[in-house]
Amino acid sequence: MPLPIVIADDSLLARKVLTKALPPDWDVEIAYASNGREALALYRAGKATVMFLDLTMPDMTGYQVLEALQHEDLNTFVIVVSADIQPMAQERVRALGAIAFVAKPVTPEAVLPILKEYGLYA
């Protein structure tokens, strides 16, 4: 059974780059969100065992998504993918429950160790 994942980013190009950075043989079912509200809706629909989350999105930021997930008993592995690589941003997302922070542009070399560390990819 494929693992449900969400890729949430307002940039179509960023969503494509991230999709290509995932292991090609990883058995996943990908849902895409272009803003935080869509990401939360997909999470609530059970489509986000893993969520790749951009921080800067219209309508609802990645920070707001993390806060909502934390309020709802965070039950997903959130990997933040952002161009904002400031230490304060990284500390804040970890405090809000993210398991990792990956800088854009995303590479397979950045994603794979995280997936393996959390048992999401063998």
Score class of each variant (00 low, 15 high):
Asn75Gln: 15
Gln86Ile: 03
Asp73Phe: 00
Ile7Lys: 00
Thr56Pro: 00
Ala41Cys: 02
Phe52Cys: 02
Leu53Ala: 03
Glu72Trp: 08
Lys16Ser: 13
Ile7Cys: 04
Gln70Glu: 03
Leu12Cys: 09
Leu42Cys: 09
Leu22Gln: 08
Asn35Leu: 13
Ile85Asp: 14
Leu53Cys: 05
Ile85His: 06
Glu67Cys: 00
Met88Phe: 07
Lys16Pro: 00
His71Arg: 15
Thr49Ser: 13
Ala39Leu: 06
Leu13Ile: 10
Tyr63Glu: 12
Pro23Phe: 03
Ala33Pro: 08
Arg37Val: 13
Leu40Val: 05
Gly36Lys: 04
Lys20His: 14
Arg15Asp: 10
Glu72Gln: 14
Ala45Asn: 12
His71Thr: 09
Val78Thr: 15
Met60Cys: 05
Met51Leu: 15
Ala14Lys: 03
Gln90Trp: 02
Val28Ala: 09
Val6His: 08
Lys16Phe: 11
Ala39Val: 01
Thr56Arg: 14
Glu72Cys: 05
Asp73Met: 04
Val80Cys: 05
Thr19Val: 08
Tyr63Val: 12
Glu67His: 01
Ile30Thr: 15
Gly36Ala: 11
Arg37Ser: 11
Pro87Val: 11
Phe52Pro: 05
Asp27Gly: 04
Leu12Lys: 13
Arg37His: 13
Asp27Asn: 14
Val6Gly: 01
Asp25His: 09
Arg37Leu: 15
Leu69Pro: 03
Thr76Leu: 02
Ala33His: 08
Asp59Thr: 12
Asp54Gly: 10
Gln64Lys: 15
Asp84Leu: 10
Val65Ile: 10
Trp26Val: 04
Phe52Asp: 06
Leu18Val: 11
Pro58Leu: 06
Leu18Lys: 07
Arg15Ala: 10
Ala48Gly: 10
Asp73Glu: 07
Gln90Asp: 08
Leu74Met: 14
Gln64Thr: 14
Ala48Ser: 10
Thr76Arg: 01
Leu18Pro: 10
Met60Arg: 08
Gly46Met: 04
Pro58Val: 10
Leu55Asn: 02
Thr49Ala: 15
Leu18Ser: 00
Glu38Cys: 07
Asp73Lys: 08
Asn75Gly: 15
Glu72Val: 05
Asn35Arg: 09
Ser82Ala: 12
Ser34Tyr: 08
Gln64Cys: 08
Met51Lys: 02
Pro24Thr: 11
Leu69Gln: 06
Ala33Cys: 12
Arg37Ile: 12
